[in-house]
Design a protein around this nucleic acid. Structure first.
Length: 917
RNA sequence: GGGCGGUUAGCUCAGUUGGUUAGAGCGUUGCGUUGACAUCGCAAAGGUCGAUGGUUCGAGUCCAUUAUCGCCCACCA
C-alpha cells in the first residue's frame, strides 16, 4: 500500500455501505458463542440488548440515531471484550400510529373509510403496508452502523410474539389479574378508542369558568311536574361553577362541604337540573373545597373522575350524556346529536334565557388531550379490559429497590418509585383493528372463553357460535414482553435459556413508564426474573440551540441528511460526545461537521502512519522485541505510551460508569492533541535517523492501532476502514475486522513489568512536558514577533540541571519550534547574555533568541516584567498555600506537586530578575 | 400541590469519590499552505462557575437558603 492509493479526504459515502456489508455477510453481528453452534459453551458470559422496537411504518428520526448510537457502542464494546454479544433487532406494530397511517392512505387513494372497507380487508391491507414499508426503518438503522443480529429480527405481530401475547394474557386472566368491566376511562373521540392514563397529556390552556344557579326544589312540592316557572324563579338557589356547562346534563348531585355554613342547610334537599328539570340531591362530601369557586360542586359521575369517585361513595346514579364521538346522546334531551362544544354554547344560551346564569370569567386550567390525536380526551364510562396492576407493581418496585435492577442515571429510580407506588389499573383494550386481538370469545349465552388457541366451542356451554372480542390490546402490552418474547418465550428455547435475562435496557427517559416499567412488571411476572439488570436512560435530542424538536417549529433535525452530508461516524460521535446520561442533548449540523472533521483528521493520521509503515523495509510486528524493550524508547516514545496507558485506564473507567461522552472526548483529545499534534510531528524527526526509525514506526503503528480500537464503538466505519489499511500495511493479519480484543487486554500483555509504571510515567512525562513548554514558548514568541513558520531561527540555551535532557532532545524541539539546528547551542550556563535577543524562561531553562533588529528593548523589558510579575504571584500563592494546613492534611503527592511547582516558579523568577538586571 | 433537572467563555455544552492557573466545539482576532490533513496548522482574546451563607487546610464539585428557566407526576369544579 502506498500513499497515492489513499485519497486525501476520507470518503465515507463509498466506505460505509461496503464496510457494513462486510460485517453483515461476515457474520460479525452474531454472538460468537451461539446455542446453535456445535461447540457452544453455556459458561461464556453474555451481553444482550433487546432493541427498543421502532414503529414498523416509521421513518428514521433523530431519536432513533440516539439509541442506535448508544446501544451499538455498548454492544461493540462488550463484543470486543469477549462477551457473547447479542443485539436483538425488531419492530413494533404500533397500533394506533400504523392504523391511522394506513387509514389515511386508503381514504386518500380509494376514498373509502376503514369502516366501509371492513375489518378483515383492512387488516390485510395493513399487512401489505407493513411488508412494503417495514423494511425502510430497519435499513435506515443498518445505515447507522447497528451491529444487530438480523437473523434474529422480530416483529410484535409475528406468530411467535402473538403466541407470547396470548400466553401472557391467559396467564394473567387465570390468575385473576385481568378483568373486564365498565369503568370511567379516557376516551379519544377522534380515534374512537379508549386510551390509558399515560396516553393523556395535560396542558394548561385558557378556558371559561361558568357560574350558574342550581335552583332548590320548593319545599311544599313533592314533585317537579307541576312547578311553575314563577315558583322556580323565586326559589332559593345554590351557586355552582363549572368549566363544562354541557355536563350539567349528566349531573346527579350537587355537593358541598359538610362544614360549610353557607350551604349546610341545603344538605339533603333537592335541586332541579337546569333545562332538563331532573331532581337531584344536595350531598355533603369533604372532597369539596370551601375556598374554591362557589364552594358548591356539581357532580357528573359519567364524565369526571372525581365525580365518579364521589358518586360511588354516595351511591349516586351515573349518567352518560355523550356518545363515542363525544356528541350528546339520548340522555341530553333537546341537545341530542350536538357536539359537546356546540351543546355547551347552546346550553348556556338557554340557561341565560331561563335566568339561571350568574356570570362567566376567564380561567386557566389543565385540559386533557390525547397524546396521539391531540383532541380533548373525554372521561367516559365504558366496558374495557384492565390489568390489576398492584401485585405486578409490587414485584417491579422491589426489583429496583433491592438493586436487582439499576437505573442510570440514578435519579430516575426515584421517579420510578413514585410512579410505581401510585400506579392505577392498566386499561389494555383498544377499539382498534390493528393489533393483538383479545383472546376472549363469547357464546350467545354470554359465557366467556379465554384460551391460548382459538376455541371451537364455548368452554361453559359447548356452544359453537363463538364471537371473538372485538378489541385489540394496547401496543405496550406486547412490547412489555419484548425482552423474552423475542428469545422464544413461552417456549424454553436455547436462546431464552442462554441469553435471558438480558443485560442492559437502553432507551429514552420519556418511555420509562410506558415501556420500561411494563417490561419489568411483565418480566418478573412471567419469567420470575428481572428482564435486565441495568436500565440506561439517554436524554432527548434537541436542536442545535436547545429547542425541543417539532414539526410545527420547523426545526426537525434529519439524521439521514446529516449522514449524507457528514457521514454516519460524525453523526454517531455527535450523539455520544458532549452528552451525559439522562440529560437532553443538542444536535445539529455544526457539531456534526466538526466531528466529520475529526473523522477526516483520523483518516489523515492513518494515511501518515500507514505510509510510514509501508515505507519501511522491515516487518513491524507486534511481537518485536525492540518494541517491548523500553530502553530503546525515546522520550517521546515513552511519553506517548504513558499517555496511551492512561487513556486506556480512563476510557475503561468511564465505560464502567456509563460516561460514554467523557470516554469519547478523551480519545478525541488524545488522538488529536497528543498523538497527531505531538507524536506524529516528532516521529517525522525521529525517522530521519535510521536507528530510531524502526522503533518509531512500531510505536506509531501500535499506539494508533490501539486508539482505533478504543474509538471503534463510537465511530465504527472509519476506524474499521483505516484499521484494514493499516493491517494490510503491517502484513500480519489474518483477521478481517477491527472488532478484536479490547486494548486493555493488549496493554497488560505487552507492557514489561519491571518498570514500575507510576514512577516511570511520571518522570518521563514531566521531562516531555518541559520540552513541550519550551516549544510552546518559542512558538509564542515567534507569533508575537510575526516570524514566518518557515523561518529557521537561532537560539542559545542555558539549561542548568536539564542539560542532559535538552541535549538529548535538541533535535526534537528544534524541529518542533523551527530552530536552526546548526545555530543552536545548549550549555549548562551562558557566560554572557547574547545581545539583541529575546529571553524565554521555562523553569530553570533560559532560552535566548537573537532577533537582530527586531527586538525593541523597552518592549522586551516590559514583556519580561510581565512574566516576572506572573511568576511572583504564583510564588506568593503557593507559599501561602504550603504554609497553611494544606501541607499537613493534603495527600503527600498533591503537596509534592505544589512544592515542585513553587520551585519551578522560583527558578523562573530568579532568571527573569537576572535578565532584568 | 409534589418531585426532578439546568444555571460554567459570545453561542452550545463537558467537568462523578472536594486537591488548588476551570476545559472543548463553534464563533472572534492575528499569522501561516509543496512535504498526513485548509474537512488543516500555530498563536491570541474571552469566565466574580446564578446569588447568599456554611462545612473544610482547600468548594464549579458537599450542605442550607434563595433567584430563575425547564421537565415529570398530581382529581380542586
Amino acid at each position: 500500500m502506498t500513499k497515492q492509493e489513499l485519497p486525501k479526504t476520507y470518503d465515507f459515502k463509498s466506505t460505509e455501505p461496503r464496510i457494513y456489508a462486510m460485517w453483515e455477510t461476515g457474520g460479525f453481528f452474531k454472538p460468537h458463542n451461539d446455542p446453535s453452534n456445535a461447540d457452544f459453551d453455556p459458561n461464556i458470559e453474555t451481553f444482550v440488548i433487546a432493541i427498543p422496537p421502532p414503529n414498523v411504518t416509521g421513518e428514521l428520526h433523530i431519536g432513533h440515531s440516539m439509541f442506535v448510537s448508544v446501544e451499538d457502542l455498548m454492544v461493540r464494546y462488550h463484543r470486543m471484550k469477549g462477551y457473547s454479544t447479542l443485539w436483538i433487532p425488531g419492530s413494533d406494530h404500533a397500533g394506533i400510529a400504523t392504523q391511522l397511517m394506513v387509514e389515511r392512505d386508503i381514504l386518500k387513494n380509494e376514498e373509502v373509510t376503514r369502516e366501509e372497507m371492513g375489518r378483515e380487508k383492512f387488516i390485510e391491507r395493513t399487512w401489505e403496508w407493513k411488508r412494503k414499508y417495514g423494511g425502510i426503518i430497519t435499513n435506515q438503522i443498518r445505515r447507522l452502523g447497528a451491529s444487530c443480529d438480523w437473523s434474529r429480527e422480530r416483529f410484535t405481530l409475528d406468530d411467535g410474539l402473538s403466541r407470547a401475547v396470548r400466553e401472557a394474557f391467559v396467564r394473567l386472566y387465570e390468575k385473576g389479574l385481568i378483568y373486564r368491566g365498565p369503568r370511567l376511562i379516557n376516551w379519544s373521540p377522534g380515534l374512537k378508542t379508549a386510551v390509558s392514563d399515560l396516553e393523556v397529556e395535560y396542558e394548561e390552556e385558557d378556558a371559561t369558568m361558568y357560574y350558574f344557579k342550581y335552583k332548590l326544589k320548593p319545599e311544599s312540592r313533592s314533585s317537579t311536574s307541576g312547578i311553575s316557572e314563577a315558583e322556580l324563579r323565586d326559589s332559593e338557589y345554590i351557586p355552582v361553577a363549572t368549566i363544562r356547562p354541557e355536563t350539567i346534563l349528566g349531573d346527579t348531585a350537587v355537593a358541598v362541604h359538610p362544614e360549610d355554613e353557607r350551604y349546610k342547610r341545603f344538605i339533603g334537599k333537592t335541586v332541579i337540573v337546569p333545562i332538563l328539570g331532573r331532581e337531584i340531591p344536595v350531598i355533603a362530601d369533604e372532597y369539596v373545597s370551601m375556598e374554591f369557586g362557589t364552594g358548591a360542586l356539581k357532580i357528573t359521575p359519567g364524565h369526571d373522575p372525581n365525580d365518579y369517585d364521589i358518586a360511588h361513595r354516595h351511591n349516586l346514579p351515573i349518567i352518560s350524556v355523550l356518545d363515542r364521538e363525544a356528541k350528546v346522546n339520548e340522555n341530553g334531551g333537546k341537545y341530542q346529536g350536538q357536539d359537546r362544544f356546540e351543546a355547551r354554547k347552546n346550553m348556556w344560551a338557554d340557561m341565560k334565557e331561563a335566568g339561571l346564569v350568574i356570570k362567566t370569567e376567564p380561567y386557566r386550567t389543565t385540559i386533557p388531550r390525547s397524546q396521539r390525536g391531540g383532541e380533548i380526551v373525554e372521561p367516559m364510562i365504558s366496558e374495557q379490559w384492565f390489568v390489576t396492576i398492584e401485585p405486578l407493581a409490587k414485584q417491579a418496585l422491589e426489583a429496583v429497590k433491592d438493586g436487582r435492577i439499576k437505573i442510570v442515571p440514578e435519579r430516575f429510580e426515584k421517579t420510578y418509585y413514585n410512579w410505581m407506588e401510585n400506579i392505577k389499573d392498566w386499561c389494555i383494550s383498544r377499539q382498534l383493528w390493528w393489533g393483538h386481538r383479545i383472546p376472549v370469545w363469547y357464546c350467545p349465552d354470554g359465557h366467556m372463553t379465554v384460551t391460548r388457541e382459538d376455541p371451537s366451542e364455548c368452554a361453559h356451554c359447548g356452544s359453537i357460535e363463538l364471537i371473538q372480542d372485538e378489541d385489540v390490546l394496547d401496543t405496550w402490552f406486547s412490547s412489555g414482553l419484548w425482552p423474552f418474547s423475542t428469545l422464544g418465550w413461552p417456549e424454553e428455547t436455547p436462546d431464552l435459556k442462554y441469553f435471558y435475562p438480558t443485560s442492559y435496557l437502553e432507551t429514552g427517559y420519556d418511555i420509562l413508564f410506558f415501556w420500561v416499567a411494563r417490561m419489568i412488571m411483565m418480566g418478573m411476572e412471567f419469567t420470575n426474573e428481572v428482564p435486565f439488570h441495568t436500565v440506561y436512560l439517554h436524554g432527548l435530542v434537541r436542536d442545535e440551540i436547545g429547542r425541543k424538536i417539532s414539526k410545527t417549529l420547523g426545526n426537525v433535525v434529519d439524521p439521514l441528511l446529516l449522514m449524507d452530508e457528514y457521514g454516519t461516524d460524525a453523526l454517531r460521535f455527535t450523539m455520544l460526545v458532549g452528552s451525559t446520561p439522562g440529560n437532553d442533548t443538542n444536535v445539529g449540523p455544526k457539531k456534526t461537521e466538526s466531528n466529520r472533521n475529526f473523522a477526516n483528521k483520523l483518516w489523515n493520521v492513518g494515511r501518515f502512519v500507514i505510509n510510514a509503515v509501508s515505507s519501511t523495509t522491515f516487518q513491524v510486528s507486534g511481537t518485536d522485541d525492540r518494541l517491548l524493550n523500553t530502553d530503546n524508547w525515546t522520550l517521546a516514545d515513552s511519553w506517548i505510551w504513558a499517555k496511551m496507558q492512561q487513556l486506556v485506564r480512563d476510557v475503561e473507567r468511564h465505560f464502567q460508569n456509563f460516561q460514554y461522552g467523557q470516554a469519547g472526548q478523551q480519545i478525541y483529545d488524545f488522538l488529536w492533541n497528543d498523538f497527531a499534534d505531538w507524536y506524529v510531528e516528532i516521529a517525522k524527526e525521529q525517522m530521519k535517523n535510521d536507528e530510531a526509525t524502526k522503533q518509531t514506526v512500531a510505536t506509531l503503528a501500535r499506539v494508533f492501532d490501539m486508539s482505533l480500537r478504543l474509538l471503534h464503538p463510537f465511530t465504527p466505519f472509519v476506524t474499521e476502514e483505516i484499521w484494514g489499511h493499516l493491517h494490510n500495511a503491517l502484513r500480519e493479519s489474518q483477521i478481517s475486522s477491527i472488532a478484536q480484543d479490547w486494548p486493555e487486554a493488549l496493554i497488560v500483555a505487552k507492557f514489561p513489568e519491571p518498570r514500575e509504571p507510576e514512577d516511570w510515567e511520571e518522570t518521563r512525562t514531566a521531562d516531555f512536558e518541559l520540552i513541550q513548554e519550551i516549544v510552546r514558548s518559542i512558538r509564542n514568541l515567534r507569533s508575537e514577533k510575526g516570524l514566518a513558520p518557515s523561518k529557521k531561527i537561532a537560539a542559545s540555551i542555558s539549561a542548568g540541571a536539564k542539560l542532559d535532557l535538552l541535549t538529548s532532545q535538541s533535535s526534537v524541539f528544534a524541529w518542533l519550534a523551527g530552530l536552526d539546528f546548526s545555530q543552536l547551542s545548549i550549555l549548562e550556563s551562558l557566560s554572557d547574555k547574547p545581545k539583541d535577543s529575546a529571553t524565554l524562561v521555562v523553569g530553570s531553562v533560559e532560552i535566548h533568541i537573537p532577533l537582530a533588529g527586531m527586538v525593541d528593548l523597552a518592549e522586551e523589558k516590559a514583556r519580561l516584567e510581565k512574566e516576572l510579575k506572573e511568576a511572583e504571584s504564583h510564588i506568593e500563592r503557593l507559599e501561602k498555600l504550603l504554609s497553611s494546613d494544606f501541607a499537613n492534611k493534603a495527600p503527600a503527592a498533591v503537596v509534592q506537586k505544589e512544592r515542585d511547582k513553587l520551585a519551578g516558579y522560583k527558578e523562573t523568577a530568579e532568571k527573569l530578575k537576572a535578565q532584568l538586571g
